[in-house]
């Protein structure tokens, strides 16, 4: 065989190993923060297990876990629904819907969340009750008795603080989630809508079959983050004396003066919840991406 001329550029590059640097890079890339986090959690768990005073605090506070989780979960689902409707309205050509959605989002985003919770629970809900009662009286005057009876039966007691807290969180987060959906829908190329319309689909059909499935997939990470944020912000409902884990910790600390035990335990509980949720969401996202 004739000797072949080999282009030097085509030859494999000599592998230059710089062991030290590689080790350094590995050392830098190692998730130290995660190890520290787990250590803190483990230490806290051990403390709660080993020390009588911590264990007692934990057993007390644990009773609020169901309230925290159910308020977060229910509010989140309502907020997603509200957010989807609002996000779609924000993009609607209907001037009334569009402006209404914009007004809602801007109102909510301009007021601190705690103030909103006070406002919705202590001003908004009583106002709605008043309105329903007045409507009931009006129906009564018109002689439509069944509606009148039903509507005047509402009183502020029909809406316990837990319900008001859920309404407040839902309405607040609905505005944030609306912006997520809006951005997600706007991120889909114009050509998708054009292709759908050119096939004769109405704008609603195109939205349902073409735009939303892609948009929702794009915003899932952001929606997940908002769920974690919702779990943390649910602690704000303690200002309405709803007995979530934060409120119970406050009560426990107030009556026993064991502030360290109460708030240590509380922090660790939130941390455990949010870290576990984040890890779950990450795994879920990775699975989605693998399907692409």
């Amino acid at each position: 065989m004739p000797e072949q001329q080999v282009d030097p550029l085509l030859q494999p590059h000599p592998v230059i190993k710089i062991e030290g640097q590689r080790e350094l890079r590995n050392w830098r890339a190692f998730p130290w923060w995660f190890v520290a986090l787990i250590s803190i959690a483990a230490l806290a768990a051990y403390t709660i297990y080993a020390q009588e005073s911590y264990r007692e605090a934990f057993l007390w506070i644990k009773a609020g876990l169901q309230v925290t989780l159910s308020i977060s979960l229910i509010s989140y689902f309502i907020a997603v629904f509200l957010g989807l409707i609002t996000g779609l309205s924000r993009l609607s050509k209907n001037v009334f819907l569009n402006n209404l959605a914009r007004l809602y989002v801007e109102l909510i985003r301009g007021v601190p969340m705690m103030v909103l919770i006070f406002f919705i629970a202590l001003v908004g809900v009583p106002a709605v009750v008043d309105g329903l009662n007045n409507l009931g009286h009006w129906f009564g005057q018109q002689g439509i008795t069944p509606l009148a009876v039903a509507l005047t039966a509402f009183s502020n007691k029909s809406f316990p603080m837990t319900v008001r807290a859920t309404v407040a969180l839902s309405v607040t987060y609905g505005a944030f989630i609306a912006e997520i959906f809006r951005a997600g829908i706007q991120s889909i190329e114009r050509g998708q809508m054009e292709a759908a319309r050119s096939l004769g689909m109405s704008s609603g059909q195109a939205m349902v079959h073409i735009i939303l499935p892609q948009a929702i997939r794009n915003v899932l990470p952001a929606l997940g983050n908002d769920f974690v944020a919702m779990v943390k912000d649910s602690s704000l409902v303690s200002v309405l004396a709803v007995r979530d884990i934060t409120q119970i910790s406050r009560l426990y600390a107030g009556s026993t003066f064991r502030f360290r035990e109460a708030y240590m335990t509380l922090s660790v509980m939130y941390l455990t919840l949010t870290v576990a949720l984040s890890l779950l969401l990450q795994a879920f996202e990775r699975r989605l991406r693998r399907n692409d």
Partner: peptide, 23 residues
Amino acid sequence: QKHLNEVRAEIGMVFQLFNLFPH
């Protein structure tokens, strides 16, 4: 709009960037 949708169904359109539905 309703009339347009009916007419558009009778008109095929092919785009420069294909615009297939990726999902």
